[in-house]
Write a protein that binds this DNA or RNA. Structure first.
Lengths: 210, 210
DNA sequence: GTTTAAGTTAAACACTTGTTTAATTTTGTT
DNA sequence: AACAAAATTAAACAAGTGTTTAACTTAAAC
């Protein structure tokens, strides 16, 4: 069975249950019986539709990461000051990852070990594209003389995304520390304070002269 | 069997094999038969010494994270400018995590989900202590008037550690992108460029006035 | 040297794993 | 209504899971 990019209703139902469970308990921590029980389908349907558990994961990645590039390209062509573009890019990243936590958690967890390196190709292309977009914004700012020139551009993405992920992966700790008792409060903190912190950090890094 | 803090040679042998395998393939992806085979001991020895696979993980955390607090306290009492203390703290963090990648990868991966929240207590105390240390350095700098006052201190740790983790978890990607063909080149890049990037970022954040 | 405890072993336990089979039901087409 | 393709099912498969057992060996204590 070849890797498809369009899925029927039942397949989508399976994919979304798998997304939740993989994100919650990891790929190895989730059994196909577990998935089929929650999705209320027979175990055999997963092999029938996707071929195997591994292929189910691959399909899930395809299903969720296909339109990010489009959103980024749109941002690039907007008529904004470089720093405003950076701020918008950060907002786009955080918003997108935050409302697709499941899949990004899975990407973060499952696609780092050598074990699944074969499936890593498409993911790697996505990251390269994202980096190119960031590069073009920063180089524009450097030409205009508003950004310093001694920053290491490929390390800026780790700072943006890493800050978010580290915050989110220590969710129970920060919920407790910052008194974010409800899911709404937590989400709101991300959308305002955390996003602002990251924007403030990157802005300082790009503009400050020591 | 109570949770011990001192281990005999055979236990340490098991713990270190477990560390490697958990880091490589995750907790669920590693079987006790796998561990016992690599450690060249009988399967039953793991239950005999640690009680269960879960308790083995707990023991591993205890075994590896017991002396970080001591190192931090030492740094606090050194006679340095606040910004120098911050730089040293960043260096300490990165160095320590980088030379204990296994356990930190495990902490990062296994202790985030609700699933193992019970074992999270000791880890949470460690993080609170670390935050207190960072807070005291920054407040010192603010009193001296060299650090701005509108930074959100608890979000600085995510930026420091998150940047490192995100970089390291995308190791294959950055090895390729930055031409870090050998393990030595990779480690060297972390010790110099990545550490400098993080120091530069945090410095800019703490000092830059918009 | 005997007794007690600690260490070590292979085998068995009950249970879960991902995948496949073959039979049955549903759906769509003529 | 008859046929073929697709969807769905329960059951079986072999292999792997964490843990426990009971027998055995080694080491320590008296």
């Amino acid at each position: 069975m070849a890797l498809k990019t369009d899925f029927n209703d039942k397949q989508i139902q399976i994919l979304e249950v798998a997304e939740t469970l993989f994100a919650e308990k990891g790929f190895d921590g989730t059994s196909i019986r577990n998935i089929s029980k929650v999705a209320k389908i027979n175990i055999a349907m997963i092999s029938y539709y996707f071929g195997s558990k591994e292929r189910l994961l691959e399909s899930l990645i395809v299903y969720r990461t296909s339109d990010l590039k489009y959103q980024l390209d749109n941002l690039l062509q907007e008529d904004l000051e470089p720093i405003e573009k950076i701020n918008k890019l950060i907002e786009l990243y955080i918003n997108r990852i935050n409302s697709n936590r499941g899949i990004y958690r899975i990407l973060h967890f499952e696609f780092t070990s050598k074990k699944r390196e074969q499936n890593l190709q498409a993911f790697s292309e996505l990251k390269k594209g994202n980096l190119k977009s960031l590069e073009s914004i920063i180089e524009e700012g450097q030409k205009k003389g508003v950004f310093r020139k001694d920053v290491i551009i490929p390390l800026i993405t780790p700072t943006i995304l890493g800050t978010f992920f580290h915050f989110h992966m220590n969710k129970p700790f920060f919920e407790n520390l910052l008194n974010l008792k409800t899911e709404d409060l937590y989400n709101n903190y991300i959308k305002t304070n955390l996003t602002k912190h990251i924007q403030q950090t990157i802005k300082a890094l790009l503009i400050y002269e020591s």
